[in-house]
Write a protein that binds this DNA or RNA. Structure first.
Lengths: 328, 328
DNA sequence: GACACGGCTGCAACCGCTTGTCATCCTACA
DNA sequence: TGTAGGATGACAAGCGGTTGCAGCCGTGTC
C-alpha cells in the first residue's frame, strides 16, 4: 500500500538502485535523471521505509534515553535538550523511565540496545560495579555520573556548593545540615563530599541526614529531623526535598530565610515559584543534554577519540529568599 | 558480530526457519527439538534483531507519543503511564516534544508515522480542521481532545469545574475570573465553557482573561490583571498559572485563601506543595495514558470497533487552602 | 498391505533498501 | 582511428528475520 522504491523505479522506467542513489547520494547520478526521479518520487508521495533502511545500513538512527523519573523536574529540561539536539541531527529518541528502580536500568538497556544506535543514561542509579555492562552493550554516554573508561557529561556541583556554603558562612551560619539523596546516587556522593569539603574550608559544622528520595514527601519527612536539630541552615540534595521541607516548616511557623536558611540543588522552575522563593544551585541540565547527544554522535561516527571524553559543566548559586542571616 | 538466527540454526544443525518457529511459535515444533534450540540460543546469547523482525512482519512494536511540553507537570504522569502500559505489552515509546509549537505536530507526526505502529497525541494544539490528516497517517489515539471519527480519551473537566464553582459560590463568591489557556487549546475551550455554564447555574458573575501560556511566568503576569479587577476568586486554566499568580499576589501581600480564592486545574504534585496549598481540580492523567495505550492496542489488533471508542474520564475538586470564604 | 492423514521440518520467497561490481557508452587524447 | 578512462546505471547479493508450501516419515484404518 505504501509506495516503495521499486514503484518509483518502475514509474521512471529505471532501476531501483538508481532511484536509491538519486535520493541519498545525488552526486552519483546524472543531473537530469536525478531531477526526473525526484519529481516522480515527490508526485507519488514516496517516502523511504526507515525500517528497511535500518536493516540495510545497520543503523537505526535512534538513541535510547534512560531516565530515573520523568516527573522529577530535574529531568525534563535535559530530556528536551536531548530531543531537540537529536532532532537536529535526524535522530529519534526512545525514552525509558525506570521509575527510580536501579535494577531495571540494565534490563531496559539490554532491550533497548538492540533497537538503537547508542544509549544515553541520565543519572543512572546502577551500582558502579555493574556500569561496565552498559558499555559492553552499545555505545554509551553517561550524564551526571563519571564512569571510568566511558564517555560522560558530568555536572560538577562543587563550585555551586562551595558558593552555597560560603554564602551561609558569610551570614553567620556555623552549623548546617545536608539532607542526602538516594544512597546509590552518584551525584549524592559528589554533593555530599563537596558540602563536606566546603564546610571544612569555611569552618562550619556539618550534620548529614538521609537518605531521602528526591521527592516532595521526603522533604516533608525531613522537616521534623531538621526542626529538632540545632542547625541554622540546610542544604538539600535537590529542590524537591528542599521545597517539601520548606512547606512543612512553614506549617510549623518556621519561616525559611528568617528562622532557618534553606538551599536546594537543581534550580528547577519551582524554586522561583515557591514562597519564599528558594535559593538553589543552578545545574546546567539543558547544556548537559545537548553535550550528551554531541558526544554520542561523535562516538557513533568514526573513531572514538582515545581518552574517552568527559565533559565537565559548572554550577553556580542562585540566591533567592530562602536564605538569610543567622537568627541570633 | 551479533549472533543471528542462522548461527543458532547452524549450531543446532537445523534450518533457520525451525529455529524461528521454535522461538516465536512453539506449538509448531517438536518439544525436544524446541528445548534443544532454546537452550542453544540461550547459551549463544542469541537475541532477535528487532529491525529485521519489524521489516518482515511489517510492524515495529513502537508507539509514537507526541506531547506539547514535557516540562509541564501535567504531562509526565501521562507519559509515565503510557510508557509503563506499553512496556507491559512489549512496545516501546518514541517520544516527541513539540515545545508547544502547534505547527510542528503534523510534521513530526509524518516523520514518526513511518517508524511506529500508531500515534498517541496528547493535548494536540493543531487546529481542528487539520486533525484529520493525522488519522490518515496512521492509527491514532487522541488524548485530552475529542476528535470526530477518531479514537480519543477525553477528560471531562465539567464535573470538577462545576464542583469548583459550587464550592466558591457556597463561600459567598459572586464575581469570579477565569484565566484562559492557549487560544488553540481544545481543553481550554472545554474548560472555559464549563466554567461559564457553571457560573450561570450558580448565579455567579464571570470575567474571562487571557490567553495565558501554561507557564508559571504567565501566572505572574496575570497577577496584575487580577489585582485590579473586582473578582474575589480565580479559576486558572492550569496549576502553573495558578501557582504563578499566587506567588505574585503573595509578594503584594495578597494572601490566597484569605484575600482571594484561587483554584488550579490538574492537581499536579506542586499544588500540594505551594504555600498556601493550592485547591485544584484533579485530572486523571495516568488513567488517561493507560487507556490510550489500551485503545491503541485494540486499534492495532484486528478490526477496530465501528463507532470508534471515546473514553471519558471524570475530574473532581481537591480542596486545599488557597480557597476560602469571600472577604467581607 | 495400501492409503490417508497429520505432525515436523526444510526450502525458498519475501519485506524494502543499500551498495559493490560490472557492462555500456561516450569523450578525449594520442 | 584506436583505446584508455570516466560517467552512468543495471544487476544481484545481501541485511536478518518470517511464513506459505511441500516433502518426509510414522501411524492408524480398512
Amino acid at each position: 500500500m505504501a509506495v516503495t522504491l521499486a514503484d518509483v523505479a518502475q514509474a521512471c522506467g529505471i532501476s531501483a538502485s538508481t532511484v536509491s542513489r538519486a535520493l541519498s547520494d545525488p552526486e552519483k547520478v546524472n543531473a537530469q535523471t536525478r531531477e526526473r526521479i525526484r519529481r516522480t518520487a515527490r508526485e507519488m508521495g514516496y517516502s523511504p521505509n526507515s525500517v528497511a533502511r535500518s536493516l540495510s545500513i545497520g543503523r537505526t538512527g535512534m538513541l535510547g534515553l534512560i531516565v530515573p523519573d520523568i516527573a522529577n523536574p530535574f529531568f525534563p529540561p535535559i530530556i528536551k535538550a536531548v530531543q531537540s539536539r537529536a532532532g537536529q541531527k535526524e535522530s529519534a529518541v526512545l525514552l525509558v523511565d525506570t521509575d527510580e528502580h536501579a535494577s531495571d536500568e540494565l534490563d531496559r538497556a539490554r532491550t533497548l540496545s538492540k533497537q538503537v544506535d547508542g544509549l544515553i543514561l541520565i543519572s543512572p542509579r546502577t551500582p558502579a560495579e555493574q556500569l561496565g555492562e552498559f558499555v559492553a552493550l552499545a555505545p554509551v554516554v553517561f550524564v551526571n555520573r563519571r564512569v571510568d573508561g566511558a564517555a560522560s557529561v558530568v555536572i560538577d556541583s562543587s563550585d555551586g556548593i562551595e558558593q552555597a556554603v560560603q554564602h551561609l558562612a558569610a551570614m553567620g551560619h556555623r552549623n548546617i545540615c545536608y539532607l542526602g539523596g538516594p544512597r546509590l546516587s552518584w551525584s549524592n556522593k559528589q554533593r555530599q563530599a563537596a558540602v563536606s569539603a566546603a564546610c571544612e574550608r569555611f569552618g562550619v559544622q556539618l550534620q548529614v541526614r538521609g537518605p531521602f528520595e528526591p521527592q516532595i514527601q521526603a522533604g516533608v519527612r525531613a522537616a521534623d529531623l531538621v526542626r529538632t536539630s540545632d542547625c541554622t541552615a540546610v542544604i538539600a540534595y535537590d529542590d524537591l526535598i528542599a521545597l517539601g521541607l520548606m512547606a512543612r516548616l512553614t506549617e510549623y511557623g518556621v519561616q525559611a530565610g528568617r528562622d532557618v536558611s534553606i538551599i536546594g540543588i537543581d534550580d528547577s522552575p519551582m524554586s522561583g515559584m515557591a514562597y519564599p522563593t528558594l535559593t538553589s544551585i543552578h545545574v546546567p541540565g539543558a547544556e548537559a543534554g545537548t553535550m550528551a547527544v554531541d558526544l554520542m554522535l561523535r562516538l557513533l561516527s568514526g573513531t572514538p577519540p582515545e581518552p574517552l571524553p568527559v565533559v565537565e559543566l559548572e554550577t553556580r548559586l542562585v540566591i533567592r529568599s530562602s536564605t538569610g542571616p543567622v537568627r541570633t
